[in-house]
Simulated assay, not measured.
Amino acid sequence: MKRLICSLLILLPLGAYASSTLRCGSALISLEDSSSVVSSKCGEPISREFVGYREVLDEYGFRHEVVVEEWAYGPRNGMYQFLRFEGNRLIKIESKRGR
Rank of each mutant, 00 (worst) to 15 (best):
S35G: 02
R48G: 04
S39Q: 08
G43F: 02
F50S: 15
E44D: 12
A18T: 09
L8M: 05
R54T: 09
S19H: 10
R76F: 09
I93L: 08
R3Y: 12
L9N: 07
I93G: 00
I91Y: 09
S19K: 05
G78H: 03
R84A: 00
E44I: 15
L11W: 07
Y60L: 06
G98D: 11
V67N: 13
S35D: 00
L90V: 01
L22S: 01
L90T: 00
A16S: 12
S19M: 04
N88Q: 00
S34L: 12
S30D: 03
F62H: 08
K96H: 09
R63Y: 13
Y53L: 09
N88G: 05
V37Y: 04
F62R: 07
A18P: 06
Y17N: 06
N88Y: 14
E65Y: 13
R84M: 07
S95Q: 14
E94A: 06
P45T: 03
C42T: 01
K41G: 03
G61S: 11
G78A: 11
G15N: 15
V51D: 11
E44L: 15
L11G: 06
G78E: 03
R76V: 10
E55F: 03
R97G: 14
F85V: 06
L57F: 06
L90P: 00
S95E: 05
I5T: 08
R3Q: 12
A27E: 13
V56A: 05
L14I: 12
